[in-house]
Computed example of a mutant assay.
Amino acid sequence: MNSLDEIAGRRMVKPRTAADHVADRLREAIVKGLIEAGTALRQDDLATKFGISRMPIRDALRLLEAEGFVSIHPTRGTFVSLIDTGEIREIFILRQLLECAALRDAFPHLTAKVLDDADHILDLIEESTDFSQWGMLNLEFHMILYRPCKNKRLLGVIEAQNNAAERYIRFLSTIRDFRGRSGAEHRDIIAACREGNETLAIERLTCHLQIGCLTLTDAVENRP
């Protein structure tokens, strides 16, 4: 391998910008409920609080808009998106279409190492007591299975849809035994992959996402 091959083979890492950091902080606050739905987010106020110019604030809000965390109106400004079960259903319909396609394309490339890595993430999920960390690990579990499809655009859209759903995930923490049931569904998907049964793996992933959607919409509709 020559030097150019070696450079090209390295995993590309997107540099973190001020906008990325602001978006991370605001996203976390929205997910945890520290900033309530409908709250106005004013660029001048945020720039003052973060001690930076308005430009990265504007870019951060655009990132959050793309993920569904905020709504930007041309005259009224930016507001934290309202909790919407219709949006949840739309997200999970897209997730089902996209993630089943990704798993189908990735299936021939799911090595024992990939499946072992996925199992390791499930072990970490079971050990974690931090629900916000659970959400991150849950996404990583799914992405480990999909990355071998090598379709960067598809993977990017899948991750964006998961990020859009993240603000609703906190409601699942109120559901007894949800994590245990979800973990069992994840193990069943891995088992089908180890058996080399693509059809069964797709069926189990589909069922997992459908149950997740129903559980989440019910939690939102019946929240205190």
Rank of each mutant, 00 (worst) to 15 (best):
I158W: 05
L154D: 07
A191V: 09
L82M: 12
N197L: 11
H186I: 02
H142Q: 12
R176M: 07
G183C: 07
F69P: 04
T111V: 03
E90V: 02
L98A: 03
P74Y: 03
R179F: 06
F178G: 01
I190M: 04
C193T: 12
D105F: 05
P74M: 02
K150I: 02
E140N: 10
E195T: 06
E127A: 15
R170M: 07
L82N: 13
A192M: 15
C149D: 08
I91Q: 12
I169L: 10
M136H: 01
R176F: 13
I158Q: 04
L139I: 04
P74A: 02
S182L: 06
L137Y: 03
A118Y: 03
E203F: 12
V114L: 01
L115C: 11
G156K: 14
L110G: 09
A201V: 10
L82I: 12
I83A: 01
L172D: 03
R147D: 05
T111P: 09
L94H: 07
I93L: 06
F178L: 06
T199N: 14
F107L: 10
H109I: 00
S182I: 01
Q161G: 01
W134V: 11
Y146W: 14
I202P: 14
I125Q: 10
D130T: 02
G196V: 11
D188R: 13
E203T: 11
